Amino acid sequence: QVALSRTQVCGILREELFQGDAFHQSDTHIFIIMGASGDLAKKKIYPTIWWLFRDGLLPENTFIVGYARSRLTVADIRKQSEPFFKATPEEKLKLEDFFARNSYVAGQYDDAASYQRLNSHMNALHLGSQANRLFYLALPPTVYEAVTKNIHESCMSQIGWNRIIVEKPFGRDLQSSDRLSNHISSLFREDQIYRIDHYLGKEMVQNLMVLRFANRIFGPIWNRDNIACVILTFKEPFGTEGRGGYFDEFGIIRDVMQNHLLQMLCLVAMEKPASTNSDDVRDEKVKVLKCISEVQANNVVLGQYVGNPDGEGEATKGYLDDPTVPRGSTTATFAAVVLYVENERWDGVPFILRCGKALNERKAEVRLQFHDVAGDIFHQQCKRNELVIRVQPNEAVYTKMMTKKPGMFFNPEESELDLTYGNRYKNVKLPDAYERLILDVFCGSQMHFVRSDELREAWRIFTPLLHQIELEKPKPIPYIYGSRGPTEADELMKRVGFQYEGTYKWVNPHKL
Rank of each mutant, 00 (worst) to 15 (best):
G318D: 06
D255L: 07
K473P: 11
E361R: 13
F410E: 04
D255Q: 14
P464I: 03
G485W: 02
Q468V: 08
R424T: 09
R456D: 06
F449N: 03
E435W: 05
V256L: 14
K357H: 11
V366F: 07
P309K: 07
P412K: 05
L359I: 05
R484C: 14
S483L: 03
P474E: 11
Y500C: 14
H371S: 11
E284S: 13
C266G: 12
V373F: 14
N423E: 09
M257T: 15
R451M: 02
P431G: 11
Y340Q: 11
V496W: 11
E416N: 12
K404L: 15
A274M: 03
E488I: 08
A269W: 02
V325G: 03
C291Y: 13
A336G: 06
L339K: 02
S293W: 05
Q380P: 06
S293I: 03
R484A: 11
F410I: 12
V391G: 15
N308E: 09
K405W: 07
G407A: 15
Y340M: 09
G422R: 10
F442Y: 09
F449G: 01
E414Q: 13
R456T: 11
V268T: 08
E365Y: 05
K511A: 07
P323N: 11
E294W: 04
D310M: 06
M401S: 05
E470S: 11
G485L: 01
F449C: 07
A374E: 13
G375N: 13
E457K: 00
K404D: 10
D279L: 06
T331G: 09
D283K: 05
P309L: 08
N423P: 13
D310N: 13
K383D: 13
G497K: 14
K494I: 12
L465F: 08
G313Q: 03
P393E: 10
Y481E: 02
F442C: 03
K426G: 14
W506Q: 12
H371L: 07
V295H: 03
P393G: 13
R484P: 07
W459C: 11
K405I: 15
T316G: 08
T316M: 10
L265E: 01
K290M: 06
Q499W: 14
D321S: 09
I377S: 03
V256I: 15
N343R: 02
A374V: 13
L439W: 07
P486S: 03
H371F: 06
V391L: 14
H448I: 12
P323Q: 06
G485S: 03
P350Y: 01
G375K: 14
G422S: 14
M402T: 12
V428P: 13
Q381I: 11
L261T: 03
E472M: 07
P406S: 11
L359Y: 00
N411M: 05
A396M: 15
T403I: 11
V507Q: 07
A274Q: 04
K383S: 15
L368C: 05
N299P: 08
V391R: 15
Y425F: 14
L492K: 03
Q263V: 03
D321V: 10
L289P: 01
K475F: 05
S483Y: 04
L353Y: 01
E472V: 09
M401L: 14
A358C: 07
T331I: 06
G482L: 02
S293P: 07
Q296R: 12
A315C: 12
D372V: 06
R384P: 15
D279I: 10
P326C: 12
P326T: 13
E491Y: 07
E365R: 01
G348L: 01
L492I: 12
T420W: 15
G328I: 10
E472S: 08
A374C: 09
A458C: 14
N277Y: 07
A336K: 03
K400Y: 12
L455S: 04
L339N: 00
D347H: 14
Y500S: 11
G422A: 05
C266A: 15
V295W: 03
W346T: 02
F409W: 12
G307A: 09
K290S: 12
P464A: 05
Y479K: 01
I480W: 10
R384L: 03
G313Y: 06
Q296H: 12
R424N: 15
G318P: 05
S415V: 14
P406H: 15
W459Q: 14
R354F: 07
V256Q: 15
A458E: 14
F334N: 00
G497I: 13
K287T: 06
G422C: 08
R362Q: 07
G375M: 15
E344D: 14
V281N: 03
P273W: 00
Y504G: 12
E501F: 05
G348Q: 05
L437I: 11
K505E: 13
H379S: 09
H379V: 09
Q258W: 07
A315V: 11
L353S: 00
V338T: 07
T333E: 02
G482K: 05
A269V: 04
